[in-house]
Design a binder for these strands. Structure first.
Lengths: 332, 332
DNA sequence: ATATTATGTGTAATCGATTACATTAAGGGG
DNA sequence: CCCCTTAATGTAATCGATTACACATAATAT
């Protein structure tokens, strides 16, 4: 690896001139510029970012923290983030926290240590006060999953209202006993979706009991387990609302394995509209979030932060959509 | 953000001593150490990685390049990589190339510019000679998808033999007309799987014609399209081998939509054993790669490279497994 | 008591870039 | 022909850390 000094020597100029050529400063006469460019070619030189960044105090890299790339919900969002980031000269790297607090810390240290310029959080293991401090000290924006109290900007949908709509849909189909598959971990979005579920039951005049909510981990397997719990109940639900598509799909699978007909014996609604939700049998009714756009908007907020344009914590609420398919209405 | 100088001044010592405390060098007397640690606390100091890395010429970050985090096949591999990386003090960041040559280049520049120490390639858009040069200059290892000629180490399975086994399985069930869904893009693994497919046909005494191979992009949608093409043929296949699970699942979906019974009317085999392959209807027969272990092994190779222990390009071939499920044998 | 060694800390060079300021040379005006 | 402006390039400080080496002091050996 060659350095700017070697290039300068080879071209017979000073390092300053080489730097000017690299950075397209106009104060270099053509003949010199050519000589430098030839030297760069010959030495196969590329500037060491460490040196540059140390001086500039910026890396033009942003990171996206998410619990697991295995959840297909995230990929579209990341694509949106990447699109906006790229057109502004930023590089995006994805960090898999595995919902591990320590690992999350390690990644966030890259922010503190100035190895990345900013971060987008799509989930966080830290508590409110830690997040609040993080947001105060560094450019950070939340997307989809969020904590409201912390004064950190976020982009999300109205989870309560989305859940309300999903459950009301089930109620309007005549279901009177509606179960829910929520999350073991107490995410804010999960709490909001539970609130929406409860409100919908209440507004439809349906009764609730705590047995109607089971708790999973957003994955297929836990959806199957929850479905089995439902089937062991004496007074079984005839419809289930799950807060993730994989759990809904797992539940579908378990119900069908026990010989139940979907949607006649039991209807299922999911959340996120992952690609698989159209591939399962029957296709899954679900809530679609505008994932790509949410990613774009989030990156825009982060850019504002990075440029200090905006110091108020912005809160962006985007529209969702209930997509009705065969898991609740036959033949859709 | 405070610097080591500020800490030094606050503690009344030199920067060297502060550095010694940070790096747990033992040549610091307890009383001094405490004073420094108190100053670090008070100033909320953390070392600037840019400065440190510039000096050390290492970042302890490695990156994983993959075409899209949306393909669930990658997540387990990344988990394996992360596990080994972490226990060796490395941080893993995932880079989404979207199969875009330019974007891939941008990421690889981070290697050249020394912002990351090494890279794991899970697919590449560059050609053989570019890869060869990359591997010569930087610590790079390939995983799963690879180019053999380039002298860059890799971890993979025997794709030809896996495809051979999958297709032989179909032949042994009595299928005589077996189609294949391959990849538009000419990946090495795809070519190998095609070779295995052809060999299996030949060894089973089955005839081949070019119409029997359709080309997709690894995603669901393309699987459906290929299935529709098969169904429009005059002499339709009774079995199909797809080189990705999503394409196989898309094909399943399309066949079922046309009223075909699986596996009686048409049998389907996929590749990769993604989680969803157990959730579809019927469950998918597929080839399982030891993804987590492959990730671990790949990271180990990269570590060897980073430590210059190993200069020979290592080639690791791991075992696969044919998992037989309901899409080829009813009731499995 | 003196010489020697070990121990803890400080000084300053260094990593590879950027950039304010200094310097030099060329061109223009009187 | 000389002075002043302007343009191109060079010099050297700087970013924030690490670390070889120097140095001072205390402990040990003779």
């Amino acid at each position: 690896m060659s350095t700017i000094q070697q290039v300068a020597k080879a071209a017979g100029v000073s390092v300053a001139t080489v730097s000017r050529v690299i950075n397209h400063s106009d104060k270099v006469v053509d003949e010199t510029r050519e000589r430098v460019e030839r030297a760069i070619q010959e030495l196969n030189y590329s500037p060491n970012m460490m040196g540059r960044n140390l001086r500039r105090n910026a890396t033009e890299i942003i990171m996206v923290l998410l619990p697991s790339i295995s959840n297909p919900f995230y990929s579209q969002t990341v694509n949106g983030i990447t699109a906006v980031a790229r057109s502004n000269g930023f590089t995006v790297m994805v960090c898999n926290t595995l919902s591990d607090r320590k690992l999350e810390q390690d990644f966030l240290n890259l922010l503190k240590f100035k190895l990345v310029d900013g971060a987008i959080l799509m989930s966080q293991e830290m508590d409110d006060s830690e997040l609040e401090e993080l947001g105060r000290l560094y450019p950070v924006v939340q997307c989809s999953e969020y904590i409201d109290a912390a004064g950190v900007p976020y982009v999300t949908i109205d989870n309560a209202s989305a859940a309300y709509e999903a459950v009301s849909h089930l109620a309007s189909l005549g279901h009177t006993r509606i179960g829910m598959i929520s999350s073991k971990v107490n995410y804010y979005s999960a709490a909001q979706r539970q609130a929406g579920y409860l409100q919908a039951l209440q507004d439809a005049g349906l009764e609730f009991e705590s047995e109607l909510i089971k708790f999973g981990d957003y994955g297929y397997g836990s959806g199957m387990k929850c479905a089995e719990q439902f089937m062991r109940m004496q007074n079984k639900p005839t419809a289930v609302f799950a807060i993730s598509d994989p759990m809904a799909i797992g539940a579908l699978k378990a119900f069908r394995q026990k010989g139940l007909k979907i949607p006649d014996d039991i209807a299922v609604v999911g959340f996120d509209n992952i690609r698989f939700s159209k591939m399962c049998e029957p296709e899954l009714t679900t809530i679609a979030q505008p994932t790509y756009k949410m990613g774009c908007r989030t990156m825009e907020l982060l850019l504002e932060r990075l440029e200090h344009k905006q110091d108020l914590p912005e809160k962006v609420i985007m529209d969702y959509e209930l997509i009705i398919r065969g898991s609740t209405v036959a033949g859709s």
